[in-house]
């Protein structure tokens, strides 16, 4: 094990995959000479040169589609979006081309590409730069949606995403890049579609992903102080969703809270709740409660922003409600 940041874990995954497979290239705004808007691609231009680490114009639709065309004929592009907020400019290509080409062509065309970048809010970036979009992409058949919360998961899942024969939407977070953690050495991959029990427990399950994993673990610590044993299930992949791991946990605890950064309406948590009620309705001792970002565009003001976001306190309160303690 080596301790490193989430940013460096991604950097290592990119470097190792580019060394392993010359079809892999990185393209996006500021990925080369600037060393990455968030420094994820630091040093890669120097090592791999400008044909494989390509700085683009600010033209998300164009270069995402260009990546798709290259993938259609056998390359393995990693397209970096400075943030998923800007992917709205590229979403026609992601939804109308990338997700559907295999199906529309009767299985003749593969689009093995990764589209990656930070998702959701950072700090005081206001409404247009603080949006969590995983539910939008998870909705689309043909896409996979991967959202690691730790450095180890970031490395193992990015390597799997690059090797996958289907397009993968890979969502990171500005607030995750500096997170440190233990990362196994060597060529370790983590299968797409596998959730991870980040903390075992018996009284209540907290299902979370990406930036809600840390507050969920913090909430579990606080609940433990009150002798409540919370199990924390990190989805890691939104689509395909690891329903088995969720159901196994909730069958054990009989109570569940689902926490996500995004908005409540038609969110990822709604899909988790649907899976639970359809499959193990009789195991539930309480309705499942969702903790989400508030249903408003993100405000700039620091206090208002904090109020809009999911935190450990909100998760603790929800856990107590499903335990009928509040």
């Amino acid at each position: 094990m080596v301790t490193m940041t989430y940013r460096d874990a991604l950097n290592e995954a990119l470097r190792e995959e580019m060394q392993r497979d010359e079809r892999v290239f990185l393209m996006g705004e500021e990925v080369g000479e600037y060393d990455g808007a968030y420094k994820v691609s630091r040093g890669l231009l120097k090592e791999f040169g400008p044909m494989r680490v390509v700085d683009t114009p600010i033209a998300e639709l164009g270069f995402t589609g260009l990546g798709a065309g290259a993938a259609m004929v056998g390359l393995r592009p990693v397209i970096e979006l400075m943030t998923w907020n800007f992917a709205l400019l590229a979403i026609d290509q992601i939804v109308n081309s990338i997700a559907k080409l295999r199906y529309m062509s009767g299985g003749q065309v593969s689009v093995p590409m990764v589209i990656r970048g930070p998702n959701g809010a950072a700090l005081q970036l206001a409404a247009q730069h603080s949006q969590a979009f995983e539910a939008w992409y998870a909705y689309i058949p043909g896409l996979k949606v991967v959202m690691p919360a730790t450095p180890a998961d970031a490395k193992g899942l990015l390597k799997s995403a690059i090797r996958d024969d289907d397009p993968v939407v890979f969502m990171e977070g500005e607030m995750l890049y500096n997170l440190k953690g233990e990362v196994p050495e060597g060529d370790i991959t983590i299968p797409i579609g596998s959730a991870d029990v980040k903390r075992a427990g018996s009284d209540v399950t907290i299902v979370c992903h990406s930036k809600t994993v840390a507050p969920a673990l913090k909430a579990a610590d606080r609940l433990a102080e009150e002798d409540i044993s919370a199990e924390v299930v990190d989805l890691r992949t939104i689509r395909p969703m690891d329903t088995d791991t969720i159901l196994t946990s909730v069958s054990k605890t009989n109570r569940c809270v689902v926490a996500e950064e995004g908005w409540p309406f038609c969110g990822v948590g709604a899909q988790v709740v649907d899976n639970i009620q359809r499959n193990i309705f009789d195991e539930l001792d309480a309705p499942v409660i969702r903790v989400t970002g508030e249903d408003v565009p993100m405000p700039y003001n620091k206090r208002l922003e904090k109020a809009a976001k999911v935190d450990a306190t909100k998760i603790v309160a929800a856990a107590k409600r499903v335990l009928y303690l509040e």
């Binding site: 290239f25 044909m51 639709l61 164009g62 270069f63 995402t64 589609g65 260009l66 990546g67 798709a68 065309g69 290259a70 993938a71 259609m72 004929v73 056998g74 390359l75 592009p77 026609d92 290509q93 109308n96 081309s97 080409l101 529309m104 062509s105 065309v109």
Partner: peptide, 23 residues
Amino acid sequence: LGGHAIVGGQIPLGTGMAFAAKY
């Protein structure tokens, strides 16, 4: 490599195939 039915959607794709040839 396809008929594409969103106006203009195929143009970046074709550009990417040219990129792949050069790559």
